[in-house]
């Protein structure tokens, strides 16, 4: 499989009143064409920042301080805003948490899909509304012609998420970034939305980066998992291998805290300690060491790097 997105030693820092927050430090991973990769971690792990950086939509306070983001041979950290704008929406697109908030509340959904088509697609103005209806039908919205004239508030949360998916897929991108796409949806709706993304991705050989805190969701829909903790990639590998035999102590701890059938409450264990303060964290050193029961003296040294790629690897001096 050929590589589509390669994130290499990406570092991002945010200027805040309390000091510089090193939100991402030397993050590396890659996605091949047609592959589905999960970016997994708890809140504050830097999953969303990674996605925002890849899309070039970081908050102005955030800055890429190092590394490269290579999309289909183009280095996005060097590219002009024009070039990125051209890719965004056409070649790479994103669906967000809380679909209702991500849609424009005062534009009809058909119009919002047409906007994307007219901006990025090769389509005549007169054909855009019909194409919008076709896209709504494709994401399984019943009575699409009528629904295309609806406003977001007239649709349920699940319907809004389908509209978001229709917008994201309008120009047949080669990469879809889905940032917690099913948070706030019912499990039944979640299953339908995730099936839809998976089926469309397979049909079009589209690569998907699924950002989620839900290991179970990742295990059902993804080929590979990249685990993040406090702005570092701590482990990555094929999903079955990583879940069956996690190598980083953090991944193992995360699994041991996740409720699942056959496990009693007493068998679950919390992860000790808290996320380190990223304003004070020393550069290039394991950020889990303070919470880790496998810590050794050499853990204070520089972090073993994880090269981007499909192999199972953990950034740990004393892996399991």
């Amino acid at each position: 499989m050929s590589e589509l997105l390669r994130v290499e030693n990406l570092s991002v820092a945010f200027r805040t009143r309390g000091g510089i927050v090193r939100a991402l430090e030397t993050v590396s991973f890659s996605i091949a064409r047609g592959e589905t990769v999960a970016l997994v971690g708890e809140s504050g792990s830097g999953k969303s920042v990674t996605a925002y950086a890849a899309m070039g939509i970081l908050d102005p306070a955030g800055q890429v301080t190092g590394g490269r983001i290579v999309f289909d041979g183009i280095d996005l950290t060097e590219a002009s805003e024009r070039e990125i704008e051209d890719l965004r929406g056409r070649e790479m697109s994103m669906i967000f948490q809380n679909p209702r908030a991500a849609l424009n509340p005062i534009r009809r959904i058909g119009t919002q899909i047409a906007d994307v088509l007219l901006r990025h697609g090769n389509i005549r103005r007169a054909d855009a509304p019909a194409e919008a209806v076709r896209l709504l039908a494709q994401v399984g919205i019943p009575d699409p012609a009528r629904r295309s004239r609806a406003y977001p508030f007239e649709l349920s949360g699940g319907m809004c998420q389908r509209v978001m998916i229709a917008i994201a897929l309008a120009c047949a991108p080669s990469l879809l970034i889905a940032d917690e796409p099913t948070t706030g949806l019912d499990v039944t709706t979640q299953a339908v939305a995730m099936d839809l993304v998976r089926d469309l991705a397979r049909e079009r050989q589209m690569a998907t980066l699924l950002i989620t805190h839900d290991l179970a969701l990742a295990s059902e829909y993804c080929d590979r998992v990249v685990v993040m903790h406090a702005g570092h990639v701590v482990e990555s590998g094929p999903v079955a291998e990583l879940l069956a035999a996690p190598r980083h102590p953090y991944t193992a701890r995360l699994l041991a805290a996740t409720p699942r059938p056959g496990i009693a409450l007493g068998d679950l264990a919390a992860i000790p300690g808290e996320l380190p303060d990223l304003r004070r964290a020393a550069a290039g050193v394991c950020r889990f060491a303070g919470r880790c029961d496998r810590r050794r003296d050499d853990c204070a040294g520089s972090l073993p790097p994880i090269p981007p790629g499909p192999l199972h690897d953990a950034a740990c001096w004393n892996p399991l």
């Binding site: 499990v187 039944t188 979640q190 339908v192 099936d195 059902e220 699994l255 996740t258």
Partner: peptide
Amino acid sequence: AVPELTLEPPGPRPRL
């Protein structure tokens, strides 16, 4: 519809 931590790829499941 509840996702499960599975090591094998899940079989087809009835969807609502």
